[in-house]
Every structure is written in C-alpha cells, then in structure tokens.
Nucleic acid binder design. Structure first.
Length: 502
RNA sequence: GGCGCAUUCGUCUAGGGGCCCAGGACACAGCCCUCUCAAGGCUGAGACACGAGUUCGAAUCUCGUAUGCGCUACCA
C-alpha cells in the first residue's frame, strides 16, 4: 500500500513586508507537510525584491512564527543550504544575467517608457501597448544617450494560448495576448517577482510550487518563462484563499471585528493569545484539506502519512475560529498536568504578579492545574480562574454580598450555612478533600438544604466568585487557616448586608 | 470592464453516476450526569446555488445562468 512518491522540494517564499499571518502559515504548513510526506525538503526563501515595502522586523517574525508551529526548514536564510543564499536581494547578479540572456535570445526587451507615460495609459484604462518591443537599434541608442532608465520586459507570444496544469484544478488555459509583456527587471536592477520566482525555483530545483490562488493569473506567464529558458516547469499547486470569518473577501491584513468579535490575522497574536502550536497545526491542516470524512483530530505524523497536494480542495475557506478554540481545549485536556503547569507559567506569572521561577514551583498552581484543565480553552483563560488562590484573604472583598446567599435560601439561612462551614473547616481532621466533602454533605443533609445551595455561599466566601474550581479542592489549596479567614470575612460581609435589607 | 477561479448544513468538510430522501465536526437547542462552571453522554434542528441536458438512474458528467472571490503595478 505504501506508495513512495519522489522526494519533493517545496519552498515557502514570503516577502518580508509585514508580519506572518494565518494564510501564510497555512501555506507553509502544506509545504512542510508535503515535503515530509515525500521525504523531500522544505525550504524557506525570502522574496525581498521590493525594497520600498521591506520591513526589517518581518523576517524575525516570520521565522519565529514558523518555528512556533514546529515547521523547521531544511534550507533557509539563517541555516544556509546547498543553494544559498536564500534571500533574493543577495542573488541580484543572477537575475540580471538571466534577464540579459532573455534579451539576447529575443524573449525580452528593454523598455524605456517613463512612469508618466505608463500613468497616462492607466488613466485611460489601457494596458501597456508594447511600444518599445520593436525599437530599432538607433531608437534604443537615442534613449540610452538621453540617460533614460529602462526595464526589461518579457516578449510574450502574440498568438496562441498557454495552458498551465494546476494539480488542484486541472488545466487552465489563457490567450497569450492576455499576457502583456510584464516587467521582469525593474529600473533599480532588481527583478520583479515573476523573474525571481522562475529563476530561483529552477536554480533551487523546486519540484512543486505551492502558493495562494491569487497567483493563478500569473501562472501562464511563469510557464512561458520556464519555456523561454528551456527549463522544465515545476508542478503548480494553487491553494485556496483564506477568507475573513465573515466569509466575505480575502482575509484582511489587520485586526478586524466580525460579529462583534475581534479576530487577528497575525500568528503572533495567537501565540500570546494562549493557543497551543499543536492545536493551531491541527486547525490549519483542516483548512482546505481533511484527514478523512470523520476524524477531526490527528497527530503530525498521521497528517504527514496521509497528506497529498492533490487532495486539497479548491474552495476558498472562512476560518472557523470557534473550532480553533474547541481544538485548543481538546489539546489542553490531553496534556499531562505537569506539562500544562509549565505551559501556564508564562501566561500566569504576569497576571499574578509573580516571577516565572516562583510560579513554576508553586504548590498551589500544581494543585490547581488539574482542576482547571478541563475548564479552560486557552492558556489565557487560567488567570481569572486561579487568581483568588494567590490573594490574601483581605483582598477577597465581597462587592456584591447578595452572591453569598444560596439559591432558595434567605440571608439568615446563608449566614447559618457559613457558620456551619466555618465550624467544619475549623474542626475537620484530616484537612483533606474527601473528609471535607463528607462533612459538608452530611451537614447539608442535617440542615435539610440541597447540597448545591449549601455550597454556594461557601464557594463565594472562599473564591470570591459564584463560579470556581471544585470547592473542596479549592479549600484544600488554601489550607485551613486561610479558608477559615475567608469564611469569617464573608460572614461579616453578609451580616452587614443583611442589616441593610432589614 | 477584461481575464481567471470557485459554488454540499451558519461555518469547516466527506462524498467524484446507484451504498446519499447526503456522513462527520464546530457552533446552536433540549435532556442526562453534576457542589458552581466546565468536561462527558444522548437527542434535535440544519445543506447538494438555479436552469437545461446526458443517463434506466446525477450532489456526482456537460452546457448555460446567477452569485462570490481573485488578478488586471517598475507589489508580492
């Protein structure tokens, strides 16, 4: 059964103009998956041929995001490789050389059209009119003598059609005349994307081009270039775009509010937002590809074994973030408690005002972790669930004393409950969860109060909140003295409150 | 406008002529469990864009329409 595909060389080729976003991460993920599936290489190549939009922070963000997800590259700018360098601005001479070759062989020509002239055409909604495609040597010499800057344009075939085979969509055919002699080499001497991508994919022996579907319209041009050079073209795999959660339009490159909720396209926001790399990996792998009809959760190894570019769906997808949250919760519940404890520390330490070192060895957090494990979806959910345990009793105020009154109980009855609770907490031996539970339950029964109602006042007294981790465990975390202090404070608060009611 | 790509529950998807009066998942609703909240279990509601054709038979093939999206730079 094991089909052994030829090792593929696939590259993720972002341009360092902004921060890594989810769409880019998904592309990189598919690159990585396919490379590993075939036993090939995953290559990171930086396409920084647009110096105007270059953003120096971008590269670091890009690499950090990729590594966070676990997408290590086999060749790339920081680790080198047999086809180095992997940053296009450092490969400038090569592009010039290949552009010259095209010019010499009649596949390209120098164009001296000025920006103003181009602007004129655009204003009239006209494409470039190939005006310098057939310049005489004299005309060319005249422009050069003038000192006019020039670009190199591709001399696209003027008749016929070009067909590109896309692995996901099949054949795509366009009229050659629709390719209007695009610029290959800019007047600053750097190549445009079109030249650079073709030259580098060939030089780096890329076998499969995975990129967003916004590149479909220029794929025929790339095919023409491979043909002009006499090089075999790699397989084209155009990935479906990722849409805003609203489902309308390409995912924007900034934080947006959809249905009253803010969502971010930036990977770094998910790192700080408490998401687990494994969950994000699983989530993204399900965008445009699926493991099979009814298994949503799978390991990286399982995905690698099954992944194939030809199974990718051509349909654009809106990101279902609620599913990401669900997945994150699933992965959190699968963690060993000690592992979760460690993962929580960097998120909790600032919120609790503690050092990471202290918190990593804190007994309370170790004890609390398994209690909140099935109650949090994000690592950032933990703080409001455990902060009460790290506060002194005096800091637990009861701004809404009415919360200390149990369901179907009067204030007086609730006061009685707290009194009973204080008695139990003071006397119970040993001060352990099982003993506490047995004592509270039998006392509730003795007082003919439902357990839920009986525990409610105590819960608020102990944690300051009507919703908390399991009560007996919570008291155990605090210890006898601290628990008692809180119940006493709560009794006072409720007593004062009851007085105002009367 | 031109060119291109796409179209199964609200969303992510399975399915590629009969297995489908369409399966799974998230979200949603109800019930169960339960010290709160979760988690878990069960149940429910919910889709083949439309129209022609091909065929004994179409979600699946063909054509058209509609809608959406993308591209149309000396940006990638």
């Amino acid at each position: 059964m094991a089909d052994t595909p030829a090792p593929a060389r696939v590259r993720f080729a972002p341009s360092p103009t902004g921060f890594l976003h989810l769409g880019g991460l998904r592309t990189a993920l598919f690159d990585w998956l396919f490379a590993h599936h075939t036993g090939g290489q995953f290559i990171l190549r930086i396409e920084d041929t647009d110096q105007k939009r270059y953003n120096p922070e971008s590269l670091q963000d890009l690499m950090r995001g990729l590594r966070w997800l676990g997408l290590e590259w086999d060749e790339g700018p920081d680790i080198g490789g047999p086809y180095a360098p992997y940053i296009q601005s450092e490969r400038k001479e090569a592009y010039g050389k290949y552009a010259d070759w095209l010019v010499e062989n009649g596949h390209a020509y120098r164009c001296y059209t000025t920006a103003e002239e181009l602007e004129e055409l655009r204003a009239r909604n006209l494409p470039y009119d190939r005006r310098h495609r057939t310049l005489t040597p004299e005309q060319r010499a005249a422009f050069e003598a003038e000192g006019r800057p020039s670009v190199v344009r591709f001399a696209a075939p003027l008749t016929g059609t070009t067909t590109v085979h896309d692995v996901i969509r099949g054949d795509i055919t366009v009229e050659n005349t629709s390719v209007v002699d695009p610029v290959l080499l800019k007047s600053d001497g750097l190549p445009t994307y079109h030249l650079a991508v073709v030259v580098d994919d060939h030089l780096m022996e890329i076998t499969h081009i995975l990129r967003g579907e916004e590149w479909i319209p220029s794929a025929p041009l790339h095919k023409m270039l491979f043909d002009a050079f006499g090089w075999p073209a790699p397989e084209f795999v155009h990935l479906p775009v990722i849409l805003d959660p609203s489902g309308k339009g390409k995912m924007s490159k900034r934080r947006t509010v959809v249905d009253g909720k803010e969502f971010s396209p930036f990977v770094s926001d998910y790192v700080t937002g408490g998401y687990l790399p494994d969950a994000m990996f699983n989530f993204l792998a399900n965008m445009g590809w699926s493991f099979d009809g009814d298994q949503e959760i799978f390991t990286r190894a399982e995905a690698i074994a099954r992944f194939d570019v030809k199974d990718i769906s051509p349909k654009a997808t809106a990101l279902p973030f609620s599913k990401l949250d669900w997945l994150n919760g699933m992965y959190i519940r699968q963690m060993a408690p000690s592992e979760l404890h460690q993962a929580l520390v960097p998120y909790l330490a600032p919120a609790l005002g503690m050092s990471e070192g202290d918190l990593a060895h804190d007994r309370r957090l170790a004890e609390l972790t398994p209690l909140i494990q099935e109650r949090i979806k994000l690592l950032t959910d933990a703080a409001p669930m455990v902060d009460w345990a790290f506060l002194p009793a005096e800091a637990i105020t009861y701004p809404d004393p009415a919360q200390l009154i149990g369901k179907k109980l009067s204030a007086a009855e609730s006061l009685d409950v707290l009194a009973a609770g204080a008695e139990i907490v003071a006397d119970i031996e040993p001060f352990e969860v099982a003993a506490l539970e047995a004592a509270f339950r039998s006392r509730a029964e003795a007082m003919a109060i439902k357990v839920g109602s009986f525990l409610a006042p105590v819960r608020v007294a102990i944690t300051g909140r009507p919703v908390s981790p399991p009560l007996f465990e919570s008291m155990h975390v605090l210890g006898r003295e601290e628990s008692l202090a809180r119940i006493d404070n709560a009794r006072q608060a409720l007593h004062d409150y009851a007085a105002t009611l009367a």
